[in-house]
Design a protein around this nucleic acid. Sequence first.
DNA 1: AACTAGGCT
DNA 2: GTATAAGCCTAGTTG
Length: 413
Amino acid sequence: MPKKVIKNQADKIDADLDPVLKRIENAGVLLDTKWLNKINKEVSDKLLTLSGLIYKHSHRDFNINSPSQLATVLFEKLHLPTAGIAKTKTGFSTAASELNKLKGAHPIIEPILEYRELEKLRNTYLETLPKLVDKDSRLHTHFSQNTATGRLSSSEPNLQNIPIRTETGEKLRHAFIAPEGFELISSDYSQVELRVVAHISQDKRLIDTFLKNEDIHARTAAEIEGVPIDEVTKTQRHKAKAVNFGIIYGISAHGLAEGTGMSYGEAKEYIDKYFTLHPNIKKYIKDTILFAQQKGFVQTLLGRKRELPEVNSNIVNVRLAAERMAINAPIQGTAADLIKLAMIEIDKNLGKISPKSKMVLQIHDELLFEAPEGEVAKVADFVKETMENIYPLDVPLTVNIEAGPSWGATKPI
DNA sequence: AACTAGGCT
DNA sequence: GTATAAGCCTAGTTG
């Protein structure tokens, strides 16, 4: 096999990271199978109750896991209103986002939503993970580097999508534990993608926010609504947060409206105000699309390229989709470059600082370690320091560190 | 294999 | 409104 030719900095990063990823995969992460089985039992009981309730409300037995059968029950048998319900290629959508619109219309909706959540948790995690542990009760994922933006991906099992959002989902994280005498340390970059946006776009307000270490979403809300930052309401902050995410994804009024419940017009107005306040972000978007159209690719701060010939497509949807990718790829990809650099550097030195400590996972902007109880503070300091200083930008990178006996029970240290 | 759905950052 | 927020992986149903 010929050695891979290294053409640029991103290729070198990926090559240097490869052996690090191998070590992480080999280390694995300890799983508390007993705890998982206990949750599985509770979830299975609940599912039985829920399916009974759903059958009672629908006056029939059917396969709740079949979107087509569920749509028939909801819209043809129970005659729930279809106004405003999205359509898929095959009929009315039964996605959670659509069912949420029907919550008040029929008591069957709530149990369906809960059923869906618990089925997902049971089938994807509770049933599957215990089957994949090795003889030492450890899970070994496989990391891949060949993604569109430079992020890692994780498979068999994917340990980058372990639940956290719901109450039951969060319980699952408690199954990821440290061995006896050890703790898990979690270190995650705070708002790394928006900090990358601030650096790349040189947007004044964004840079100022991060220099002052202000709450970015509250500040955005304050500026758009024209109120003092400490008078921003929860709703206002929530909307601003959606806009900030939208910037990273290549915002559209429709997408923002979907994500927040704003009307299309309100969303459009909100975005216009945002760009008035952040002219350099508007410029970044414009310049990036132009660059992509002329060169056929975009690139990250460290030169990682993504080919995007579709930005010149005559097909409107194809072109617009490519434009959003062009906006997002340098942001997401730069964040990926930064944490990869940090991982390489940490791997180089961790053995000297704490020989028994190990890096065990990467979840895009977070690293997970296990460290002997007595060395947690030392390892945490080293990790934080390395991540924050890995590649100085025009805004500080900040890292939140937590530690605890399990991934679900880490607390700030 | 296509489609729908949903877990994470 | 033609379409519609970025990147992943996995599971179940359907034909």
